[in-house]
Simulated assay, not measured.
Amino acid sequence: MHDKPLRRIADELTRRRPHSSHGARETVGPDRFGIDLDRAARFVDGTLGADDEARLAEEVAELLPLCWNLPNKAVETLTPIIDHLGGQRELMAWLDGHEGRPRLTARIFVLLGLLDRYTDDAAVLDTMRAARARDPFPAGLRGELLPETDEETLSSLAYRIEKRLADDEKEAVALSLATTGWLRRIADDADDPDPSVRELGSLMAHVQQDIGEAATPS
């Protein structure tokens, strides 16, 4: 994973996303998903072997996209792991060290963090509005972008990507790549772009490459 996007994301990567503007959600039973508590305890104690650590990373990766729809108790099983690693960005770096679902989940969550970071940036909003005046629904984003371009545009895309990651990994990858590709292009095409727009374009190029690599079997 490129270090620059990881350094730019906020710390609240595993927060429960607000759902007032996204409609009703199906309830996920707490007994269907979770983290093996003994495995997690041994990881925190430093006594977990490599194979079991890889399995723990898989469990964490499976849980993360469901955090918005799980009881607090289920989500709180992540806390000792995050504390042991040193924070949520360190959690992403740890997941990135494990191939497959953990690495892909980490890289998509970095994208979600960046979308949240720029969701109310005035210069980014102006650039998106100008781009959508020319092309309201770019390739791969028809039916995904909200009709109006406002402070919810990027956060809504983040929600949709996270939901897809819980439901269908390939669709999550496709929407992630469409989102990063669009934001990179509009930043590159902007006339006299604001520094935040230039930075967004650079970050999206890195994340697009990261997700593409994680989604391609080695």
Rank of each mutant, 00 (worst) to 15 (best):
L66M: 14
P5Q: 02
V28Y: 11
A106N: 01
S156Y: 08
D188E: 13
D96L: 07
L141R: 03
R129Y: 07
A41C: 14
A24H: 05
D121K: 09
G113T: 06
P65Y: 02
R132D: 07
F137R: 10
F43I: 07
D189E: 12
E162H: 08
T127G: 01
R89W: 04
E53F: 02
L183G: 01
A205I: 02
L104E: 07
T47F: 03
D96K: 11
A61V: 06
S202D: 15
V173P: 07
T153M: 05
L200W: 03
L175R: 01
A93L: 06
L95M: 10
T119M: 12
A74C: 14
P147Y: 09
L66G: 07
S196V: 11
A139N: 07
L56W: 10
I186E: 04
M128S: 05
E199D: 11
Y159V: 10
M92I: 02
G97A: 01
F33T: 14
Y159H: 15
R132L: 02
S155Y: 04
Y159P: 11
R184H: 15
W68R: 14
D168L: 04
L6Q: 05
P102L: 04
A172W: 13
T216D: 10
L141P: 04
V110Q: 05
I161T: 15
R32Q: 10
R185P: 03
L37C: 08
K4V: 14
L85G: 12
H206V: 05
D11V: 11
L115M: 01
V28S: 15
